[in-house]
């Protein structure tokens, strides 16, 4: 466990929950929070018992705003400062599925963090957007790359160039989130979705994530190779045998993660 700060990290069996916990500033990510998030993700990477990560925000916002890097140029210059403030990559690099429970506004770097999750479930009153280039430089925590890969270049450019705010229903329509639920049901619906994911075989779930996320950056023929190799590795797991056995016996499988 990491010392108390602005990331609340809790494990409940196979489910790790990361809560952005600085509601006074709408959970705006600063360098300290980014570092805490990197540390927490590092811990999760080392912990085989974690099978799903949920990231959410405390208070009314998911995370809003970004640090003005013009105010904190270090001696090593701009890139150093950008890298120090980035948080999304540590989430994106987790080997297990990551679910963002977007409890309120996800704006600027907060949106970039949500984009680094595999799945997004949003409260109906959540909004999504960037400040717009009128206000500062381009997004620097993955937004220019992950957003168009998720919703296509036109919507991404509209959001990044104009600072247009997207409400939850439009976000659902354009594929920015996977589902929208009433705000007071978010916790419950997140738990239900988590349970569905956790009912799958742990190694297969990791490999499904790897096959999709890595494979989408490969030409199709190489992606197919990756899928086949991961599948053949799965042949060696006892969970695969259990899955087949359970299917034949028409019961739910009991997976052990081996």
């Amino acid at each position: 466990m990491i010392p108390p700060g602005h990331i609340d990290y809790r494990c409940d069996g196979p489910l790790a929950t990361l809560t952005l916990d600085n509601p006074q500033v709408d959970n705006r990510i600063d360098a300290a929070m980014a570092e805490e998030l990197r540390d927490a993700c590092g811990t999760i990477c080392q912990d085989d018992s974690v099978r799903l990560v949920v990231i959410t925000g405390k208070g009314i916002s998911f995370s809003v705003g970004r640090t003005d890097l013009a105010d904190c140029q270090g001696p090593a210059g701009g890139l150093d400062s950008v890298l120090k403030h980035q948080a999304a990559a540590s989430l994106a690099e987790l080997p297990v599925p990551v679910l963002a429970a977007v409890n309120g506004d996800a704006l600027d770097q907060g949106l970039e963090l949500a984009l680094a999750a595999d799945l997004r479930i949003a409260a109906a009153d959540a909004r999504f957007g960037f400040d717009g280039l009128g206000q500062g430089p381009i997004p620097w925590d993955g937004g220019t790359q992950r957003l168009p890969r998720l919703i296509g270049p036109s919507w991404a450019l509209d959001m990044i160039l104009t600072g247009r705010m997207i409400d939850a229903n439009l976000a659902l329509e354009i594929g920015l989130v996977n589902c929208v639920v009433p705000a007071d049901k978010l916790l419950n619906e997140t738990r239900k979705l988590a349970e569905k994911v956790l009912a799958g075989a742990p190694i297969a779930a990791r490999y499904a994530k790897e096959a999709v996320q890595k494979g989408m950056d490969l030409p199709l023929d190489q992606g197919l190779r990756l899928e086949a190799d991961l599948n053949i590795l799965l042949h060696s797991t006892s969970d695969r045998a259990e899955g087949l056995q359970a299917f034949r016996e028409k019961r739910d499988a009991k997976f052990s993660g081996r």
Binding site: A204, A208, L220, L226, A228, A253
Partner: peptide
């Protein structure tokens, strides 16, 4: 349903579906 059976799709689904 593959992941819930301890496997992943094996006929290209992890590549063709996201595409």
């Amino acid at each position: 349903p593959e992941v819930h059976l301890g496997m992943i799709p094996a006929a290209g689904g992890t590549q063709t579906l996201p595409r």
